Amino acid sequence: MDTADLLERSYPGRRAELKRDIFRQALRLFNEQGIEATTIEMIRAECDTSVGAIYHHFGNKEGLVAALFFTALEDQARLRDAYLAEATTTEEGVQALVYSYVDWVENQPEWARFQYHARYAVTRGPHKDELADRNRTRNQGLRTWLSESGRAAELNECPAELLPSLIVGQADSYCRAWLSGRVQGSPKAYRELLAQATWRSIRRESER
């Protein structure tokens, strides 16, 4: 999967062609130049469009950053939910969450890199409330899965809101190191080890 695939999934059709082009160029510039250093004029020049067209779609640079961030989160959630839908046991569900996280990052490294860099800006910026609303909606299926009857009996006693972080925490740490070049091994090459380590750390003692 490349950037174009993600954008075409998220914004299909000819009418969204300019929007996709703005997203492509903005994503590249934000990753190459940094979010703070990138200006709307720089993006406009790369897209061969007007500043007005960019403002029409996104309002301002903060709106564009947030729109890119939301697009990445939604695409990541689509893959997560598809994997989770195939799981028939709690262990398979935990595995699905780890696998989908790792696979998405390796399939979409530029989006993942931007996502890590932009998180602070979006969570502290003018779109933080929209992010909170989107998170609640996007993660409803995950919360339902975690709270299904009998699920808690297989997992260590811990707050349900903490479980997603416990499940993807190790994968997230490795993926960040891979994206920054601190490690070379493919995240996908280690996804089974990461899933096994996660399951061992959260399953109930009687299950060990």
Results as ranks from 00 to 15, higher is better:
1 M>C: 07
2 D>K: 12
14 R>A: 15
15 R>F: 10
16 A>P: 00
20 R>P: 08
22 I>K: 05
24 R>S: 14
25 Q>K: 14
30 F>E: 03
30 F>P: 01
32 E>G: 00
36 E>H: 07
36 E>Y: 07
40 I>H: 06
46 E>V: 00
48 D>Y: 00
49 T>L: 03
50 S>K: 10
50 S>I: 10
51 V>F: 03
56 H>W: 11
57 H>V: 10
59 G>L: 11
60 N>I: 03
64 L>V: 12
64 L>I: 11
65 V>C: 05
68 L>V: 05
69 F>R: 05
71 T>K: 06
72 A>R: 08
76 Q>V: 02
79 L>F: 03
80 R>W: 06
81 D>W: 04
81 D>K: 08
83 Y>M: 08
88 T>N: 12
90 T>D: 05
95 Q>F: 09
96 A>N: 08
97 L>I: 02
98 V>C: 09
101 Y>S: 09
105 V>E: 04
105 V>T: 14
112 A>V: 02
112 A>D: 05
116 Y>S: 06
117 H>N: 13
119 R>T: 14
119 R>K: 13
119 R>P: 00
122 V>F: 04
122 V>N: 04
125 G>D: 07
133 D>H: 06
135 N>H: 11
136 R>C: 00
137 T>L: 09
137 T>V: 12
138 R>M: 15
145 W>S: 05
146 L>E: 03
150 G>R: 10
152 A>R: 15
157 E>I: 14
158 C>H: 10
159 P>M: 02
161 E>I: 14
161 E>V: 15
161 E>F: 13
162 L>H: 09
163 L>I: 14
165 S>G: 05
165 S>M: 07
175 C>K: 11
181 G>E: 07
185 G>D: 14
186 S>Y: 07
188 K>V: 06
189 A>N: 03
198 T>Y: 03
199 W>F: 12
199 W>D: 02
